[in-house]
Amino acid sequence: MSHPILQAEDVTKTYDGFRAINALNFYLFPGELRTVIGPNGAGKSTFFDLLTGRAKPDTGTIRYADSDAAPSIDLTDLNEYEIQRLGIGRKFQTPSVFAEHTVFTNLVLSLKGPRGVFASLFHRLDSSARDRLDSLLKLIRLDDKRHWKAGLLSHGEKQWLEIGMLLASEPRVLLVDEPAAGMTDEETHRTGELLLSLRGQHSIVVVEHDMTFVKQISDGGRVTVLHQGSVLCEGKFDDVQSNPKVREVYLGRGKH
């Protein structure tokens, strides 16, 4: 098979003596939709922080492949915006949109394109960008609210808007942190379908708690279980669910 698009090897990160990430190994392959689960404090958000340049690992390497070759770009040297420009986009656990801007402007600011100061000064929307924005607005079902201030949207709508912003930047890798939080069952299901439809063109990592949702999106894909900052086990959803270690640390405790 091909090379991983993203690989973390032997990564450790300590905060004030607490090992949030401990000798973690993780490989993500092109076009894959990977689900990461784990109890609270397992290090899921910290793991995303390390991948996106928000935190630097104490030891270990994190590499990214911008072509089909083996991963060669060292992400630990780069900062947030450099990593984003390489094509790694992130959606945060708490939806973070530009609350004072309209839905439309939120998407315009996220649209793939030059990010420099002067590009922004002389920026104009061409018709293809406009079409892209229209189709994105339809996709995230905010077409009729495009002039709303993002701050006025419901929690679920903000989640969708943030997913839309993520897509607008056309990343190769999507890191999605708890996308279904605060959504109704129906919205959750639709989110799952959206993510599944993205698989193949994008490589996706989803961190999630909601087991129904995890089951939906894992759909034959791999599930990684994090525990105390390391990978406890990895495999298909059913294998993971029946794994006694997992039941002990996670399902067993959480689902009584």
Partner: peptide, 24 residues
């Protein structure tokens, strides 16, 4: 200009702008 929207976006949530790929 788009620049102005970015300025206000930086005001309201600089980190989000950073993660959108802008060198704030």
């Amino acid at each position: 200009a788009k620049f102005g929207h970015l300025m206000q976006a930086i005001r309201d949530g600089e980190n989000r702008v950073l993660f959108s790929g802008y060198a704030t």
